[in-house]
């Protein structure tokens, strides 16, 4: 019973963090606003991509809570860790941000995505290890 609880706790923490990533990039930590002509800059694509990544990670985290099978939990934790790493490298490495590092997408959105994604990756890695060594 206790071992199952550990898996659920990790799942809950990961769900909260993933939702924070998904909602955060669309609210307080969003990319730069539109230009004077109403068009959005490239960083807006990075914002959308990070929100989708957050949503996907949240679904994976909910599955960690719901699925009782040890092997499946290990696989889901590994997938979440990889997804979080991909999410961390999305802004500026995969999708270019704006020209100046002083712009909102660089000062606020990117650090937020990187910090939250790294935390998700670390928690997922711990979840993977705990689930892998636990005895069903």
């Amino acid at each position: 019973m206790e071992k199952n609880n550990k898996g659920i706790i990790f799942g809950i923490v990961l769900t909260v963090l993933s939702l924070a990533l998904c909602i955060g990039v669309k609210t307080a930590f969003k990319a730069c606003g539109p230009m004077e002509n109403g068009m959005y800059m490239n960083c807006h694509k990075a914002e959308n991509a990070a929100a989708v990544a957050g949503a996907v990670l949240a679904v994976l985290s909910v599955l960690i809570i719901a699925i009782k099978n040890k092997g499946a939990r290990v696989a889901l934790s590994a997938l979440t860790a990889v997804g979080a790493v991909v999410s961390a490298i999305l802004p500026n490495n995969v999708i270019k941000l704006c020209m100046m590092d002083t712009m909102h997408c660089h000062t606020t959105m990117r650090p937020f995505i990187v910090v939250v994604s790294v935390i998700i990756a670390v928690v997922s890695a711990v979840s993977l290890i705990v689930n892998a060594v636990s005895k069903d």
């Binding site: 230009m35 490239n42 704006c98 020209m99």
Partner: peptide, 10 residues
């Protein structure tokens, strides 16, 4: 006036 990638002038 803005450069290649963004509207911000430098």
């Amino acid at each position: 006036t803005g450069s290649n990638c963004c509207s911000m002038p430098v």
